Every structure is written in C-alpha cells, then in structure tokens.
Amino acid sequence: MVGTTTAQRRRSALASIVTLITAFALLFGASAANAAPNAPDEGDDKSLREVLEAASKGHIEAKAKLDNSKKRQGELAAQYDALQQQLVALTDEVGTMAAESYRLGRLTSVTMLLNSASPENMLERAAGLDVMAQREGRNLRALNEAHEQAARAKAAIDNEVREQEKQVAIMARKKQDAQRALAAVGSQASGGFISTTSAAAQPAPRNSNGSWPSESCNVDDPTTSGCITPRTLHAMNQAKAAGFTRYVSCFRSGGSGEHPKGRACDFSAEAGGFKDRDATGDNRTYGNNLAAYYVNNADRLGVLYVIWYRQIWMPGNGWSSYNGGGSPAGDHTNHVHLSML
C-alpha cells in the first residue's frame, strides 16, 4: 500500500512538471520562435534608441522635402526663364506694331476721307488697319498674361526658397538632437567605415514627391518566423545580391528599437552565426564592408542608422562612437545592426 502511494506521488509530480513545461512552452513559444536561436542581446538603451530614431527619421523626412523643393524650384526657374524670353519677344512685337500704327495713323473718318484716292483704296486701308488693331490687341493681352505668369512663377520660387530654409533648419535641429543624445552617453565623432567600392543598390520605392511611403510589418521574415517591412526585406536582399551572405536575424518580438517593428536586421560578422566574441581578421573586414555598403546606399534604401564595432552612423550626423555596455553584442563588435525607416 505504501509502495502504491509513493508511485502515485511520483506520477503526480511528473505530471505537474509536464504541465509546467507545457505552460511555459505555450507562454513563451511564440516569442522564441519569432527570433533566431542565437540572436544577439544588444542590451538596448531604450531612451537613446528612441531619440536616435526620431532624429534620423526627422532628418530623412526633411531631406526628402528639401530635395523635392529644389526640384520644384528648378522646374519653376525653367518656366520663369521661358516666360522672360516670351516677354522679350512680345514686347518687341508690340513695339513694332505700335510704330507701324503710328506711321500709318489711326483709322478715323477724317483720315479715310483725306488719304484715300478712291472708295476701293479706302476699304483696303480700313481692312488693313482693323487687322492691325486686332493683332495689337492679342499681343497686348498675351504680354499682360506673360507678365502675370512670370510674377506668379517668381513668387512660387520665393516660396520654395523659404521652404528649403525651413527644412535646412529642421535638419540642423535633428542633428543637434542626435549629437546631444550621443554626447550624454560619452559618444563623439569618429572616422567610421568608408568604402569607395561598394556596389550601388537598387533603390527602394518612393512616393511621387520623393518621400518614403509608410510601411507596416506585413512581409514574412525569411530569417525568423516573424515579420518585416517590404523596405527592410529589400535592403537585406540587396546586401545578399552584393555578396553579403552570412547569417542574418531580423524580427524580434521583445526589446526596444526597430526589431519588434520589423524594421531592423542584425548581420553576423561570422559565417556560422553570432558568436560571443569580437570580430577579427576577415570577419571584421566583412563587417566593415557591410557597414560601408549600407551607409553608401542609405539614401537609395531608406536606412535609418547603422551600428558596427562601437560606432553608429546616422544620416546628417555621420559616424560617432557608440558604447553598448562592453559585450560583443551590446557594442556590436560581432554583428552589424541595420535600422530602416
């Protein structure tokens, strides 16, 4: 009887353990499945990442508006130049018509009677002066309209100049925001990673005005069971096409930054996956080249920022030192981090 009781207790304890394991699996299974098994724990500073994201996004949006304004200004300038040429031609033509009208005299009953040798001559002269008057009226109306169009074009150009000044000021403020946030954690300008041999990526789709379309996390992430944005997938595929084919992990359900939004990827410096050690030799060269690739193609792809080997690159701010806490994952010395708009 005692043996039976002990066996029952053992079975009951085993059942409890199985139940707990099942509960944990159900609770955390989705999160574990959504991330790569050896995805790096970057130890994100949430407040810092939020400031950097806002600063980079604000800079990129202002830059797109600035570029669009410059494009419109160029179109308006061409229109204004064409109108100026039209004004010169119309002014000359109106002047010629005025001189001819002055030489022949205006059509009145007196001039017709005094200067006409015959009734037929009088009618011919009347018809000629009437045609001249009509032409002169058309030219004068065209001249006035050209003047008004030129004035409107000039006012539109002035508006574009003011818009550009506004966007330049916004870009300056966003740069200051980023610099203050980085300075608060001991960061300062650095040399970064530069390559003049990076391949040119195929540009990601933009709106007709040059801005970046808003995207949600609605594309299957090929590196996890999560999701990423179409622009993030495009950036990852472009890097692969350029020869950067080592291990990648994008979506993570937890943490701060862009990973949970499907707008970030971590690229291992080593071919076999993320290792808890600083990249050296060929692995570090791989990371250097990949970081440079994304910086050189930032405007084509919609890059928000890049972190690699204790340095961070942001549009408008360039490379700055980056302290992630000392670990290879936190300092990003074992992987390149890419964040996208």
Results as ranks from 00 to 15, higher is better:
Val219Leu: 13
Asn139Asp: 07
Val248Ser: 07
Asn209Cys: 07
Asp177Arg: 08
Asp130Ala: 14
Val219His: 13
Ala153Gln: 04
Asn139Leu: 06
Glu165Tyr: 07
Ser216Phe: 10
Gln164Ser: 05
Asn207Val: 10
Asn218Thr: 08
Gly192Gln: 06
Ala133Lys: 14
Arg206Thr: 12
Thr197Val: 08
Ser216Lys: 11
Asn139Cys: 05
Gln149Trp: 06
Gln167Val: 00
Gly191Pro: 01
Arg152Gln: 15
Pro222Arg: 05
Gln149Cys: 05
Leu129Ile: 09
Ala155His: 14
Lys154His: 07
Ser190Ala: 12
Met171Phe: 08
Thr245Gln: 12
Pro205Met: 11
Val248Lys: 02
Arg180Asn: 15
Phe193Met: 03
Glu136Pro: 03
Cys250Ile: 04
Gly186Ala: 04
Arg206Ile: 07
Ser187Arg: 01
Lys240Asp: 05
Cys217Asn: 14
Lys166Asp: 10
Lys174Asp: 14
Met132Asn: 07
Gln164Arg: 11
Ala199His: 04
Pro222Lys: 04
Gln176Asp: 13
Asp220Met: 09
Trp212Asp: 08
Leu140Val: 02
Ala178His: 00
Val219Gly: 08
Thr245Ala: 11
Gln134Phe: 10
Ala127Arg: 11
Leu140Glu: 08
Ser214Phe: 12
Met132Asp: 06
Pro230Asp: 14
Ala241Val: 02
Thr232Val: 01
Gln134Cys: 13
Gly210Met: 12
Ser198Gly: 08
Cys227Lys: 15
Lys240Ile: 03
Arg180Ser: 11
Pro213Arg: 10
Arg180Ile: 05
Glu145Lys: 12
Ser190Trp: 01
Ala189Asn: 15
Arg138Gly: 06
Thr245Asp: 15
Arg141Tyr: 11
Ser249Ile: 14
Ala201Glu: 00
Asn144Glu: 09
